[in-house]
Each structure stands twice: as C-alpha cells, then as structure tokens.
Computed example of a mutant assay.
Amino acid sequence: MYTGIQHLHSYMTYLVLLGVLVSFASALAGMFGNRVFTAGDRKRGLLGLIPAHLQGVIGVILYFVSPLGASNFSGEAMGDSTARLYLLEHPLTMVIALVLLTVGYSRAKRTAGTGKGFKSIAVFYGIALLLILLRIPWGAWPGNEA
C-alpha cells in the first residue's frame, strides 16, 4: 500500500505542475492583455487548484504511513538532510504553496468582471509554483532513485 501511494504521489506531481503552470500562464496572458476576468478564467484557475489539493491529501496520507514521515520524528532527523527534507522541509513548503494557491484563487474569484483576478492568480500561483519546484525531491522520483 505504501509503495502505491508513494508512486501515486510522485506521478501526480506532473499533473499538479501542468495545472499550476497553465493557470499561471493564462493569468499572465490575461493580465498583460488587459482583459476582464471572466468565469472561464476562474475555471482555468481551478486547473491548478484542484490537483494541488488532491496531491496535498495524498501527501498527508503518505506522511503518516511512510517510514520517512511522522514516524521518523526525532532530534537526530534534523541533523540528517534527507530525513529533514521528508520530515519537515517538503511538507511545510507544500502546505505553504497550497495556502498561496487557495488565497490567490479566492481573491481572484471575488474580483470577477475586473482585471484584478489575473494579477491575484499570477502573483500567488507564481510564488507557489516556485516553492513547489524548489522543494520537490527530484532524486527520489520513480526512475531517478540513486
């Protein structure tokens, strides 16, 4: 079960990155094109939000069933960079990214009919995308294990 959840979490990352990237690019295009934020633009924002939240739920489950997650919590784990990544850095950074995505989408949703929704999504999704890319354990993806 653990291996299946781990692989699902790893491969789902591609969908999250694609969704956030599409939403971010669409917001930039709308912002620089001086368009009005419409219901269709709001739905494009969901392309990044929904997979990211689903990934977050899978990540929380994985955090509690993985030997590298909550069961590894100790003072010694903070001294080991790999253990610290899985125990603290990756989960905390991803929670912050999820909060940014949620805030950006919520702010944009309230500004329908103006151009401000694009700016909200562009700024918040852009920062979240950067955080996600910085804290993905690239070497641990299936096929990249050392």
Rank of each mutant, 00 (worst) to 15 (best):
V20Q: 13
L21E: 07
V22L: 13
V22K: 06
S23N: 14
S23F: 04
F24A: 04
A25I: 09
A25Y: 14
S26K: 04
A27Q: 01
A27R: 00
L28R: 02
A29E: 15
G30M: 03
G33H: 14
N34C: 12
V36P: 07
V36K: 07
V36D: 04
V36C: 08
V36S: 05
F37T: 00
F37I: 02
T38Q: 10
T38M: 12
A39Y: 08
A39W: 08
A39N: 10
G40Y: 05
D41M: 03
D41W: 01
D41S: 01
K43P: 00
K43Q: 11
L46C: 02
L47I: 11
L47F: 11
G48M: 11
G48A: 12
L49E: 01
L49P: 01
I50M: 12
I50T: 06
P51N: 03
H53I: 14
H53R: 11
L54M: 12
Q55W: 06
G56N: 04
G56W: 07
V57Y: 05
I58M: 15
G59L: 00
I61C: 13
Y63R: 02
V65Y: 00
V65P: 00
V65L: 02
V65M: 01
L68Y: 07
L68V: 08
L68N: 07
N72I: 03
F73E: 04
S74G: 13
S74M: 10
G75W: 05
G79K: 15
D80P: 12
S81D: 13
T82A: 15
R84Q: 09
R84D: 08
L87R: 07
L88C: 12
L88T: 07
L88Y: 13
E89S: 13
L92E: 08
L92V: 11
L92S: 08
M94R: 00
V95C: 04
A97L: 02
A97I: 00
V99W: 03
V99E: 03
L101N: 00
L101Q: 01
L101V: 02
T102D: 07
R107S: 09
T111I: 05
A112P: 06
G113A: 09
G113F: 10
G113I: 07
T114V: 02
T114N: 08
T114A: 05
T114I: 01
G115L: 02
K116E: 03
G117R: 00
S120P: 06
I121Q: 04
I121H: 02
A122Y: 01
V123Q: 12
V123W: 13
V123S: 10
F124E: 03
F124K: 02
Y125P: 04
Y125T: 01
G126E: 06
I127C: 02
I127Y: 01
A128D: 04
A128M: 08
L129M: 05
L130F: 09
L131T: 01
L131P: 00
I132R: 02
I132V: 14
I132C: 10
L133H: 13
L133T: 10
I136Y: 05
W138R: 15
G139H: 15
A140V: 14
A140W: 06
A140M: 14
A140I: 09
W141L: 11
W141S: 03
P142R: 06
G143N: 14
N144M: 11
E145H: 07
